[in-house]
Design a binder for these strands. Structure first.
Lengths: 211, 211
DNA sequence: TAGATTGTTAATCGATTAACAATC
DNA sequence: TAGATTGTTAATCGATTAACAATC
């Protein structure tokens, strides 16, 4: 398969970071090749599924040998757009916002928070990153040509902040609020909704109780 | 369908909190009945899908009328185990841990963090909640009969902390680390992995760039 | 060579969507 | 009553899993 640039299955996309993490660990241990079998075994998944997932990145392996580890890791990174850094703005510097701002792991996922914004002008810095008044967002986002926005404001400020982001030319929003946003359809929105995870977990837990 | 206690489709489980949130909003506005049509329209989903999702909670509606709002909300809560509060311990009081500890929205999801634990004994309190030394975890978790653990420690402490939780009799783990845990199979693990969301979002963003 | 692994096609499974009778 | 909505069965769609030829 030469080109699979758009509409990859979402489940596959969600699994790719898992493979990548494992590859990075193995790279540090000096491994140079990997097989779908070994990845599948370590992650408790089906080898064929792993093979299909990797195939969408365009990687080509060698029968009997597997894939070149570095080549595979780079193929995944390229496919996810993690080879070049995505610069993002963070809107909302409350507890969650600060946690995100202080998180150093984003660079491994091709993400860099270049600035944070909050309606409270008292907040000016955290973890070496500047926090600006929300009113500065439009000018800065446009000047820096930011395409990604992280929304971590209180519920009641969500709609307004999201619209502001869109007006700034932001094309993708990582939405940490539980407010359903009605944005123009060309804007990509990814929801981070803990309630969904809790629903799965607590239903299973409640079911177990009855057994 | 009278009883659907176990093995509900995960996608349905993940959608139930969305319905519940909307119901609560509408309840405040004084509405007393809802139809699948109205829920579906508001959430941009298929009405039949909504009907099937609601059916797994055991709710019964009236043709032409819809569902009693309060009855439906309670059915969802009961089905998810959110009618009684699930008490949880939080392990790891770093940036993320404190954000979780300070988050007041959990009670709406039937969750209460009763205590936090950290390897650093300097930390003693946050947002009115006590933070204890990690060595206190086993005794307290057992005494309070805690079944749910929230794991928010650094990567390198994840495996040990998770095993500690299991030894305390914890049955379900909300895993905020990106470390793959190998726990006994009866322990329920729900992964909160931002990398998965970022993969979906940044791949779509990268694809858009090419268009 | 023999056997492990890739790449691909076919079969299965489960979730979503469509169709429609029942009913308030 | 007529029409909107539920509950349920059937059809479609997409993802996972199985089967197998190609190959290093």
């Amino acid at each position: 398969m030469s080109n699979a640039s758009h509409s990859a299955p979402t489940p596959s996309l969600r699994r790719l970071p898992q493979y990548l993490r494992l590859l990075r660990t193995w790279a540090q241990q000096g491994r140079t090749t990997v097989s779908c079998t070994s990845l599948a075994e370590e992650l408790g998944q089906d080898p064929t599924q792993v093979r299909k997932d990797l195939a969408i990145t365009g990687i080509v392996g060698k029968p009997k040998v597997g894939y070149d580890l570095v080549e595979l890791a780079e193929a995944i990174e390229r496919f996810l757009g993690w080879n070049s850094t995505n610069r993002a703005v963070l809107v909302g510097a409350g507890n969650l916002g600060l946690a995100l701002l202080g998180y150093s792991g984003f660079q491994a996922y091709g993400l860099e928070i270049v600035a944070a914004f909050d309606s409270n002008p008292q907040k000016t810095e955290y973890a070496g990153k500047k926090i600006f008044s929300l009113s500065k967002l439009p000018a800065m986002a446009r000047r820096l040509k930011i395409r990604l926005g992280i929304l971590a404001v209180p519920q009641n400020a969500a709609v307004e902040a999201a619209n502001m982001m869109v007006d700034c030319g932001i094309l993708a929003v990582l939405n940490f609020t539980s407010v359903r946003l009605h944005l123009p359809e060309q804007v990509i929105v990814e929801e981070i909704d803990l309630a969904q995870n809790l629903a799965v977990l607590s239903h299973q837990l409640a079911a177990k109780k009855l057994t």
